[in-house]
Nucleic acid binder design. Structure first.
Lengths: 229, 229
DNA sequence: ATTAAAATGTACCCAAGAGTTAATTATATG
DNA sequence: CATATAATTAACTCTTGGGTACATTTTAAT
């Protein structure tokens, strides 16, 4: 094809600026999408590189290898999640309303961040090896448990919550449907149809989840009275 | 080692029996473990082959390519699940007891089949492309919905269940915590510790799930009165 | 200006692993 | 018992893609 004039096609390099942070950020953004889409082994470094504004060389320069890049992606996405959790304020609400808000916010947050969900799924396939290896765990996810503990304590003190209410169990109960709703949507709708995934049915499911949680925790709770939506 | 007498080491092939079904079954069993462990792209055909009592050639002979093998694995494991569901009998139980049993059995079945859970997680990563392509879907997972519909109808007819109770939503509500409990154990316990995964706490969680579901469906349900465990 | 170090570009290497080719053996059928 | 076909073995090919070598450019410090 281009074998034409073998003239001055020397090594004419393009000019560039030093901007390490922007380059790293650019790589991480693209890599997040690639890993979320195809998993750790399925992700393609060449593909990531070609979608960045830099080169494959820089990926290895900054992140060492594929696993290093994956780990960085995982940590960044977890940190973002943490920041979102921190923004939630329930201290000023009553225990029942506070708990209802936490459930509602969790359900919506999961639905709004499918990329994060996929990365967590992938990390679970890998037995959480990379998350465990990370040093961000301790400060991670602490706030959501603290919030639940606060709401729980106040609810019990006011005689509104059952004695059995437990913050960690509550977090499990809230996360499970919220996570499943996004994570298993593909197989669920393939098996049973898309019916539950219209906006209206999703609202209904969210209501059900709130009712289930409050019903398990709040003494004498009447379904449909959360006023949280 | 065996470099000794370079005598009659010609092409002396080992003897073998024709046994296509056993060979296929053997391949599927090993492949199931490999795919469940490493996912579609992460699985290694050479590794699978070396763990079977046959050769890599046979994998391609019977299943065409890696994706064909994966699809076969997926279909087989879904079929096994279906058979387990069919064994459950709730027609002779009252609506409340029947529903409680369905929840309990689902929770326990998920906990008992981590391999299946992993394959479903992996299939969701692939947007259920292979499940969708399969022709086993229609008859699949039908029975569980039918059972729930039966229980629901009887519960409503007897004035025990809320009018809002819906079989498909119920299945979603039952599956979500059951699935999450196994699928996300790695990241959950990495973030929050192993506390919820002792046998005692798992029993407690199962009770909570039963209570939550019954609380959402059964009019005037009192937590801890399911008698299902 | 000089220079060293950090950052970047280009081209390449090479192992891993999906998939194939061709010969060989078992078994059913007439 | 000839022979066609299904089942199987052994050895090979060849692309894909993770990772690297090395040259080059920017920038900050002296």
């Amino acid at each position: 094809m281009d074998g034409g004039t073998e003239g001055p096609t020397k090594k004419r390099r393009t000019s560039w600026k030093k901007d390490p942070e922007a380059v790293k950020e650019n790589i991480l953004t693209i890599a997040t999408q690639e890993f979320a889409a195809h998993g750790l082994s399925g992700a393609n470094i060449n593909e990531i590189a070609s979608n960045t504004s830099t080169s494959k060389r820089m990926i290895y320069y900054y992140f060492g290898d594929k696993e290093g890049l994956y780990q960085a992606v995982l940590e960044r996405v977890y940190s973002t999640l943490r920041e979102n959790e921190d923004r939630l304020k329930v201290e000023n609400l009553g225990p029942v309303e506070g708990l209802a808000l936490l459930v509602k916010a969790t359900f919506e947050a999961h639905a709004a961040t499918p990329l994060f969900i996929r990365l967590v799924m992938i990390e679970n396939i890998h037995n959480a090896d990379y998350l465990r290896r990370s040093d961000i765990i301790p400060r991670l996810n602490r706030s959501i448990i603290d919030k639940l503990a606060d709401v729980c304590a106040r609810g019990k003190a006011q005689g509104l919550f059952r004695d059995s209410a437990d913050p960690l169990e509550l977090h499990w109960m809230i996360s499970a449907p919220s996570f499943y709703n996004v994570a298993n949507r593909a197989t669920f709708s393939t098996s049973f149809g898309e019916a539950l995934f219209t906006p209206e049915r999703q609202e209904r499911l969210k209501e059900h989840v709130i009712d289930m949680i409050l019903g398990a925790v709040v003494i004498g709770y009447e379904p449909g009275t959360s006023h949280a939506v």
